[in-house]
């Protein structure tokens, strides 16, 4: 099956030459990516998560590149924010998917089912919520943690603070 046929039923959007975006439901995304890998999209450029707080969903984005077709195909899917579980693509892409998923698990708390190792990557002694979520206010956290109210040099940070 050619790659155009695989994505044709999901209404792909062509942004410009070599950039195609497609929305796939959560249940089918693993199969679509597996078929695309067989059709020649062998390079997983990146996996990303966007936190849509108002809609209550996480949008997981897979950027796939093909060395032969020379097209960047972005597969997007939505998972609920209160139950962020998605099937891992490690069986398809191997260790390159593992490291992206491990990072996203730490930063967003998304659980990738089937990933062999989701241990913390960058943060040491972190006890707060996953830091890249939209409902975690960074600047308030930083002000509480690093800028003291009593210290003279930090007073300005408590008087004027940007949101």
């Amino acid at each position: 099956m050619s790659w155009e046929e695989i994505i044709s039923e999901y209404k792909p959007v062509k942004q410009r030459p070599r950039r195609i975006w497609v929305n796939v439901p959560k249940e089918e995304v693993y199969d679509v990516i597996r078929k695309l890998r067989e059709a020649g999209f062998e390079h997983l450029s990146a996996i990303s998560v966007t936190d849509w707080l108002n809609e209550g969903v996480f949008e997981v984005t897979y950027h796939l590149w093909s060395y032969s077709i020379k097209t960047l195909l972005t597969v997007k899917t939505k998972i609920p924010r209160d139950d962020p579980v998605i099937k891992s693509v490690v069986p398809i892409y191997g260790m390159s998917a593992w490291i992206h998923e491990r990072e996203l698990h730490e930063m967003f708390g998304v659980v990738f089912e089937g990933n062999p190792d989701l241990s913390p990557l960058f943060l040491e002694d972190w006890d707060g919520p996953p830091p890249f979520r939209k409902d975690f206010n960074w600047r308030d956290y930083v002000r509480e943690k690093f800028y003291s109210k009593e210290r003279e040099r930090d007073k300005a940070y408590w008087e004027v603070w940007l949101k």
Partner: peptide, 12 residues
Amino acid sequence: LSKEDAVRLGAT
């Protein structure tokens, strides 16, 4: 690093 491993591990 073989070619297959390079692709599989995401080298660029």
